[in-house]
Simulated assay, not measured.
Amino acid sequence: MKEYKIVSPKLGWKNRTQKYEDLLNQNAREGWVVHSIFQNTGGILFERDKNR
């Protein structure tokens, strides 16, 4: 079974790319994998196995 979460990053204007990378890396350490990125809202849909 899978579980999902949606994150709407608040990146600001300074170090935007670094903050985005840090957000992705933090979620990857928690076992999340990027499933989709929504262009219109900038939201990120993460997925992982629920019984891991």
Rank of each mutant, 00 (worst) to 15 (best):
Q26D: 15
D22R: 12
E3N: 01
D49V: 02
I37K: 13
R29T: 08
H35M: 03
I37A: 13
E47D: 04
R52F: 00
N51C: 01
Y4F: 15
K14Q: 14
D49A: 03
N40W: 08
K10F: 14
A28N: 07
W32C: 00
G31Q: 10
E3P: 08
T17R: 14
S36K: 10
G42N: 09
Y4W: 13
W13N: 13
R16W: 12
K14C: 09
F38P: 00
T17P: 01
L24Y: 00
E3F: 10
A28W: 03
N40S: 14
I44Q: 04
Q18R: 11
R52N: 10
N51Y: 06
I44S: 01
S8L: 12
G12Q: 12
Y4E: 06
R29K: 14
V33Q: 14
Y4I: 07
K10P: 04
L45I: 12
T41I: 03
R52E: 05
T17L: 15
G12R: 04
E47H: 06
E21V: 10
N25Y: 04
V7E: 15
R48Q: 05
L23V: 06
K50G: 00
Q26M: 11
N51S: 07
I37E: 11
E21Q: 11
G43N: 15
L23A: 05
L45T: 07
R16L: 12
R52G: 12
W32H: 07
Y20T: 05
W32F: 08
V34S: 06
L11N: 08
E21F: 02
F38Y: 14
S36N: 13
G43L: 01
S36A: 11
D22W: 10
R16G: 04
L24A: 10
Q39C: 04
K50W: 06
G42M: 08
F46N: 01
T41A: 05
F38T: 03
W32D: 02
V7F: 11
G12N: 06
Q18D: 13
R29V: 03
M1V: 07
L45R: 11
E30I: 01
R52A: 03
V33D: 12
G43H: 14
D49P: 04
L23E: 11
R48E: 05
Q18Y: 08
D49R: 01
M1W: 09
R48Y: 01
S36L: 07
Q39W: 11
Q26E: 15
Y4N: 05
G43T: 14
E3Y: 06
L11T: 04
I44M: 11
K19E: 06
G43Y: 13
G43M: 09
K14F: 15
V33T: 12
F38E: 10
D22A: 15
N15V: 04
L45V: 12
H35E: 08
L45C: 12
G43I: 01
E3I: 01
T41S: 15
